[in-house]
C-alpha cells in the first residue's frame, strides 16, 4: 500500500472515532461512566497507536465503542479508572486478535474478555492479559478446550 494511503485513511478514521465516542458517552452515562473531550482524543490516539503497534488496520466503527458498551456495566470499572481500563482493554483486544491468528471473531473475543474480567479476574487487567487471554489464544492455535470453570467446576 502506498505511503500516502495509511496516514490519510487514519486521519479520516480519527474524526469518525471521535464523533462515535461522543455518542457512546450518552449510552455509558447511564452506568455513571463518561469520557471528557480530552480523554476521547487520548483514547482515539491510543486506538491508532495500538493498531499500528499490532500491525492492524480497522474499518468502520471499530472496536472501541463495542468495548465501551460491553464493559460499561462491569462492577469493577469506576469513573476514576475508566479511561485507563478502556485503554488497556483496547490494547489487549488488538494484541490478542493477532495472537489468536484472527481465528476468534470480535464479538467472541469481547465476550470472553468481559466474562473473564468480571469473573475469575475480578477486574484485574494484569490477570486478564497475562493468563486468561494467553490461554485462550494458545488453545485457539492448538485446539485445546477452554475451561471456563473454577476449581469446583462452576462457571463464572
Amino acid at each position: 500500500m502506498g505511503k500516502e494511503f495509511l496516514p490519510a485513511l487514519i486521519e479520516w478514521q480519527k474524526q469518525q472515532t471521535i464523533s462515535e465516542l461522543r455518542e457512546c458517552n450518552q449510552f455509558t452515562k447511564e452506568y455513571g461512566l463518561s469520557l471528557t473531550e480530552q480523554q476521547i482524543i487520548d483514547v482515539t490516539e491510543r486506538r491508532f497507536a495500538a493498531l499500528r503497534d499490532t500491525g492492524r488496520i480497522e474499518f468502520g466503527q471499530g472496536i472501541l465503542t463495542r468495548l465501551l458498551k460491553a464493559f460499561c456495566n462491569s462492577p469493577y470499572i469506576m469513573q476514576d479508572d475508566y479511561e485507563e481500563t478502556i485503554l488497556v482493554l483496547q490494547d489487549c483486544f488488538y494484541y490478542f486478535k493477532n495472537e489468536s491468528e484472527d481465528r476468534i471473531s470480535d464479538d467472541e473475543l469481547i465476550e470472553f474478555m468481559k466474562n473473564r474480567f468480571d469473573g475469575i479476574c475480578q477486574g484485574s487487567l494484569e490477570y486478564l492479559a497475562g493468563t486468561s487471554l494467553e490461554e485462550l489464544c494458545r488453545n485457539t492455535r492448538y485446539g485445546y478446550e477452554v475451561d471456563e470453570t473454577d476449581i469446583y467446576g462452576r462457571g463464572f
Binding site: M1, I57, G62, I63, D106
Partner: peptide, 12 residues
C-alpha cells in the same frame, strides 16, 4: 463481518 480489523498485510 466477524472482525472489524485485519492485519495491514491482509488489507494491502
Amino acid at each position: 463481518g466477524c472482525s472489524s480489523s485485519v492485519r495491514v498485510e491482509m488489507a494491502e
